[in-house]
Each structure stands twice: as C-alpha cells, then as structure tokens.
C-alpha cells in the first residue's frame, strides 16, 4: 500500500528533474557527458562507437556533436525529418563522405576499437568491412553475376572460379534473390525490377562479407511486398551483421530495429529501445515527429 506514495514521489522527482516542455515522461536517465541526447547512447556490446562527431560541408555544419554506439547484432534505425543529416551521419560511418569535396568530419568513430578516421587507416579494406546499400538501387551496368562477383574480385577474396561462383550463389541466396535469377545470371543487373535490383545490391554488399551494413532508405522506392522481403532479410542478416538503417517509414523503423535514434537539425535528439521510442518517446521533438505533428 505504500506504492502509491512511491508513484507520487517518482512523479514529483521527475517534475523537478526534467526541464519542462523539453522532455516528456519519467525516469529519464542520461549521461551528461553525451551532450543533450536523451536516452542511452552507449551499448554494452558496442561495435561502432561514435563520439562527438561533427560534420561540415564547407562552412556549413550538418552534424553537431553526435555520440552514438552501435551494438553487435543490432539493427539501429535512424529517423528524422528530411535534411536533418541522417544520410550525412551514416555516410561518415564508412567514410563515404571522403568522396564529397569540402566535407569535413571531426570527432572519433571507432570500429571495434579502431579509429576509422585515423590517417593511417586505409579506406579500401574499411569499406569492405562496412558495406553500404543506397536509397536508389544502383546495380552496375554488368550482368547479375558480375555485379555480385565484383566485390570479392577486387578484394581477391576467392582463389578460383568455383569458389567465386559459390560466393555469388551464397550471397544471392541470402539476399533471397537466387531462385528468381539463377537461370539468368548473365542478364544485365539493370534488367531486374526495382525490388530485385535492391536485393541484388544487398547481395553485392554481403558478398564481401562485411561486419557492418549501412542502409540509406533501402526501401523508399519499393512496393510493400519487396519492402517486406527486405525487412525479412534485414532480420535474418542481423544474426550475422551489425546494421544501421535510415528510413522515413516509422513503421519500418519500428518493425526492423531494436534501437531507434532520432535526429533533428543535425543533432541526435533521442536514442532508445525502439519499443520505448514509439510508445513513449521522452523528448517532445521525437514525440512530435513520430506522431506527425511536425512543422
């Protein structure tokens, strides 16, 4: 019978502790060291650790002091309004921003304890370790087989033709595309449908056996069936890889991810268990965004 009292004290505590109008909810626990982000930015079994990441496009700052861990065998969803820097952030994770003239990244991003922005770091093997799937399917203008074989080939992952064929078949199988294309491996990759192309791109990415897979809106051009296939695939890949996915579909984020990070104007506003973020977001901005009150 003293629980009611407990409840009341908890609520009062929360009222004093949380800045009004900024944070909702109760028992907010966050580490002051990690800036203003609400929620737990650290992960117990972190594979990638980002600390105080800032990204500049010329004089313009696109990402402001983001701290975030990405855990092993975890799917983390990055959500947020258009232009908030999700793509920019995810492209930092495998140094794809290097290809953009005038883009500068500060702070530290570690993969398994190694700083990937270390000047000694070679981006070629790094990108083999951290694969990326893009918003628009972008198969190379080559045959389906060559598309998948491309990565293993440039990294010399296979000794002979038979091995390469095995890798190709395996990757296509895991991407759930094998049965559809096994008789037409020499057809151009561009002749496939959009959903098939996207799965081909995923097969191409997993063919080099990366440790982390980054996906930037991988389903934005696909129909619900193809989307469901890819979501299923992500769920299966999670056993083996660490996955970060940018998506504009709240439902998709809720379905595929274990953790969700909400970005707003280049800042990481809130991170948390996906279930919590979608039922009980702690930050007003997150709440407004996911419930469609934004703007």
């Amino acid at each position: 019978m003293n629980s009611l009292l407990e409840l009341k004290t908890a609520m009062r505590d929360e009222r004093t502790e949380v800045k009004p109008a900024k944070r909702l909810g109760t028992n907010v626990s966050f580490d002051r060291d990690y800036g203003d982000t609400v929620g737990e930015v650290t992960a117990s079994n972190a594979r990638m650790v980002c600390r105080d990441v800032n990204v500049f496009y010329g004089p313009k700052q696109a990402i402001h002091g983001v701290n975030l861990d990405i855990g092993r065998n975890e799917v983390i969803a990055l959500i947020g309004p258009s232009g908030c820097g999700k793509s920019t952030f995810i492209r930092c994770l495998n140094r794809m921003n290097d290809t953009i003239v005038g883009c500068r990244v500060t702070g530290s991003i570690q993969l398994d304890g190694q700083d990937i922005y270390d000047p000694q770091m070679d981006v070629v093997p790094l990108r083999a370790q951290i694969g990326m799937v893009f918003q628009k399917p972008n198969p190379f203008p080559k045959s389906i087989y060559e598309n998948v074989a491309y990565g293993p080939r440039i990294h010399g992952l296979t000794q002979n033709k038979a091995e390469l064929e095995e890798v190709v078949e395996n990757s296509l199988r895991r991407a759930g595309l094998w049965d559809e294309v096994k008789d037409s491996l020499d057809q151009p990759g561009t002749s496939l449908s959009g959903g098939q192309q996207q799965r081909l791109c995923i097969a191409r990415t997993i063919a080099v056996n990366p440790e982390v897979i980054l996906m930037d809106e991988p389903c934005s051009a696909l129909d619900p069936i193809a989307t469901a296939r890819i979501e299923q695939l992500i769920d299966e890949l999670r056993m083996q890889f660490t996955i970060a996915i940018v998506t504009h579909s709240m439902q998709q984020a809720a379905r595929v991810s274990q953790r969700t990070a909400y970005f707003h104007l280049g800042k990481l506003i809130e991170v948390g268990e996906t279930a919590q973020v979608f039922t009980n977001p702690r930050h007003q901005l997150t709440e407004d965004y996911i419930t469609g009150r934004f703007g």
Binding site: M250, Q251, A254, F278, T279, N280, T286, E287, I290, T291
Partner: peptide
C-alpha cells in the same frame, strides 16, 4: 493512422 507515441497511448 497507425498511431504511435502519445496518440498510441
């Protein structure tokens, strides 16, 4: 509408 957040609650 697939409500989420406070709407869901």
């Amino acid at each position: 509408r697939t409500p989420v957040g406070s709407d869901l609650r």
